[in-house]
Write a protein that binds this DNA or RNA. Structure first.
Lengths: 222, 222
DNA sequence: CGCAAACTTGAGCGTACTCAAGCGCAGTGG
DNA sequence: CCACTGCGCTTGAGTACGCTCAAGTTTGCG
């Protein structure tokens, strides 16, 4: 699901045969910062002058409606980049879910690097395109799926992303999950219990989910 | 809302001071194709070897779940680009909503152009980033808004995009709108009627909506 | 150990859905 | 000119899924 480094069949931005610099090495000049649990990394309205990459920990990006309703747009885990979409000002906020180490790259510095290595621009574009695809895939979940389907999708996806398919360590709260899936915390909780009763998962502790029967869970994912 | 040509405060991809080529001129070498109403432009699984720009008409991109549930990801109107997000294969489908003229640009050709004018890559990235922001903004609607809020948001947005703030000519059916907003066709219809009863809009004909009182409609938009 | 925060469970409710019928309009043919 | 047909849209009645409000339980941490 998170194949940030996928190469397009017809690579754009550099002649075929020539290979792009490792996007990871973009980050060699970035500064590493530590953010405490629930600490803001950037807020809606801040000038979008940095891009980020998670070293350890987890991050949520979200938006708030006037009346306090919250929509979590995405979770970012170790190795994942965020803040790419912002052009002028950040239109969403980002917070550390748990204590996290984040690589912070100033956009000016990025510009300089790209000026000397134009291929990096293509990498940046592909990462953003990837993120866009991920976002669009989330539409069907929010617009058309039932609560069970949403939670099943979420667990499958988290299992794949953390690599630890089977036993999943959730960094985020039920409230975070609810706001990501467009549900209430109660519905998320009830649905987890339901999946456990159906023996599809087990819940040794609230933040630890074990996938017992992957097949029917994936069927729910649609 | 659709400021594809926005320049980032710290432009990335070309040295400051140097200005990018007009992204519009990208399309000078594209071929123009006409698609009839409901004709597929590309389908999920097709190789993503082209990008598109609407000249006239309207396009929907969407995904289908196994059981036939449909989520419309976006509508594209005259002047708007689509198909940017696809890397390997298209993961969504695109169809003409009404008879439409579409500029079709092969990615190979795009690559060639970019090789000689690297600044174009930056434009491509900014357009994709813009599209990503638009997608993320749609999350709050799908995840957290009521039916009235969704329909109000939609009408406001369509009013702004078509320029004809006030009298909106809708190219898409109620079903398309429902699948875009994550509602059923009945709820969309009922909600339109409700807004008309409240004198916020009038509906001279199903495809023609006039915004009578913008203020409370925007308040609903949140 | 004690407290607060996070999570779970329960009961009742409401919004949007499902199923179904009816309406309106454009196109076609008698 | 009007009946007929088909499609898109609207309206109605009943239902269900997820929400709200509330209480209770568990967990983590000082």
């Amino acid at each position: 699901m998170l194949a940030y480094a996928t190469t397009s069949p017809t690579p754009i931005g550099y002649p075929t045969g020539q290979t792009a610099a490792d996007p990871g090495d973009l980050w060699s000049t970035a500064t590493r910062q530590t953010f405490a649990r629930n600490r803001a990394i950037y807020s809606e309205g801040d000038r979008a002058d940095r891009v980020f990459k998670v070293v350890s920990g987890a991050v949520r990006t979200f938006q708030l409606l006037e009346d306090g309703r919250r929509q979590v747009n995405a979770f970012y885990l170790a190795g994942e980049m965020f803040g790419l979409e912002a052009t002028g000002d950040y239109r969403f906020s980002a917070e550390a879910i748990v204590a996290s180490q984040i690589l912070v790259l100033r956009r000016e510095r990025l510009s300089t690097r790209i000026a000397s290595e134009p291929a990096l621009m293509g990498d940046l574009w592909r990462m953003t395109a990837s993120e866009l695809e991920r976002a669009q895939a989330h539409f069907a979940l929010l617009g058309r799926k039932s609560a069970v389907e949403r939670v099943a999708s979420f667990l499958i996806s988290m299992g794949e992303r953390t690599g630890t398919n089977g036993a999943i360590e959730l960094p985020m709260s039920r409230q975070d999950i609810a706001d990501f899936l467009g549900l209430t915390i109660e519905t998320v909780s009830r649905t987890m219990t339901l999946l456990e009763e159906r023996k599809l998962i087990s819940i040794p502790s609230a933040r630890r989910i074990v996938i017992r029967d992957r097949r029917p869970l994936m069927a729910l994912d649609s």
